[in-house]
């Protein structure tokens, strides 16, 4: 089923390209070449995919407990801000500094996730509204904190550049991929996928989280503390998105901008839906979207197609995932009819 949504999304993109007077085949050819043409571009695609793996995991993990984490953007922003703050404040050797920065990102993201979790568990406040509010609180927090404490050298709207010691980019990896943006964040993401898959499939915690997701009341009846699991689930989801913030702001980029909610937060919803909420599915979907995003610049340079085509395709995939019931229903009907004809 996610495959259908993906194909429909790409088709919608083709229709849009054609409707605006462009050749869709040429458009897609350049889009994918832009993401895969050489080792540097492959590295860039992976680097673009890295934050998406984290936000996708974040959304998918909360989904498993029946929670809709629409706040990955805010959690990511706060995680990125915390990592940047540590990176700009301390002059430690790289391994130590990076470790502390990553922990800071986890704590920041988790703190942003735990609030909606607590509100949901204690007061039954809908997590969708709570996470949207937390997104904008994060947006304005960064808007005022960054210029006040970490103002950029030239621009007021961004932080100072982090030094090499505080960047997830490492020279051997950058050199291996011919100067691409790829960084240690990608390996962190793979570790996160493995750990989350393990938690969900092999631990009591994962079992309880999923049980609460399937049926909260039944889970409670079986002696599972639903409220505790809701808080825990949102906390872990927030931590994952916070790590995504580190991967983006101190890995892919080297400073934090104010006045922008990272699009990766909402893209994470698409990643999670396309990856059917499974950790490795999320990994695959994120790589696919990373490819679209990193190829769009090249496509734009070679054709007249605006780069927003990639975002349109991703958004359309979300819409088709939401409406996949119709597709499923008609597919079943069609199959039955074919079966009856035999």
């Amino acid at each position: 089923m996610p495959l259908v949504a993906g194909v429909l999304g790409l088709l919608a993109g083709a229709v849009l390209m054609a409707a605006t007077g462009n050749n869709p085949f040429q458009g897609y050819a350049y889009l994918f070449r832009g993401g895969l043409m050489n080792i540097e571009r492959i590295g860039n695609s992976l680097a673009t995919a890295t934050p998406l793996i984290f936000t996708g995991l974040s959304v998918a993990f909360a989904f498993k407990t029946g929670l809709f984490n629409i706040g990955a953007a805010g959690q990511m922003l706060i995680g990125g801000m915390c990592a940047t703050a540590v990176g700009l404040t301390f002059m430690w050797p790289k391994p130590l500094l990076l470790t502390v920065m990553i922990i800071a990102a986890i704590i920041g993201g988790a703190a942003w996730g735990i609030v909606p979790g607590l509100l949901k568990a204690k007061f039954n406040v809908h997590e969708v509204v709570a996470t949207i509010m937390m997104n904008w609180i994060a947006y304005w927090t960064v808007y005022y904190v960054v210029p006040a404490y970490f103002k950029g050298t030239y621009l007021e709207t961004e932080s100072r550049r982090i030094p090499y010691a505080a960047s997830l980019k490492v020279s051997w990896l950058t050199d291996m991929f011919n100067g691409s943006y790829i960084n240690l964040g990608f390996f962190l993401a793979i570790i996160a996928v493995v750990v989350i898959a393990f938690i969900l499939e092999r631990t009591t915690l994962g079992y309880e989280l999923k049980a609460v997701g399937y049926n909260r009341h039944a889970a409670e009846y079986a002696g599972i503390r639903a409220n505790r699991n809701i808080v825990l689930s949102m906390m872990i989801a927030g931590a994952l998105a916070g790590l995504g913030g580190a991967a983006f702001y101190v890995g892919y980029a080297s400073n934090i901008q104010i006045g922008v909610l990272p699009s990766q937060g909402y893209d994470g919803i698409a990643v999670s839906l396309l990856g059917t909420n499974s950790p490795w599915g999320v990994f695959g979907a994120a790589i696919f979207f990373g490819l679209l995003h990193s190829g769009k610049g090249f496509m734009n340079a070679m054709t007249k197609i605006p780069p927003e085509i990639a975002d349109t395709i991703i958004a359309t995939i979300i819409y088709f995932s939401a409406t996949s019931i119709l597709i499923e229903r008609n597919w079943d009907k069609l199959r039955k009819r074919m079966g009856g004809a035999k």
């Binding site: 809709f68 839906l273 975002d311 349109t312 991703i314 958004a315 979300i318 939401a322």
Partner: peptide, 14 residues
Amino acid sequence: VISGTAINMIAGAL
């Protein structure tokens, strides 16, 4: 909620 999110994203990109 998913449909509404899709509306937001489609509108912004399109």
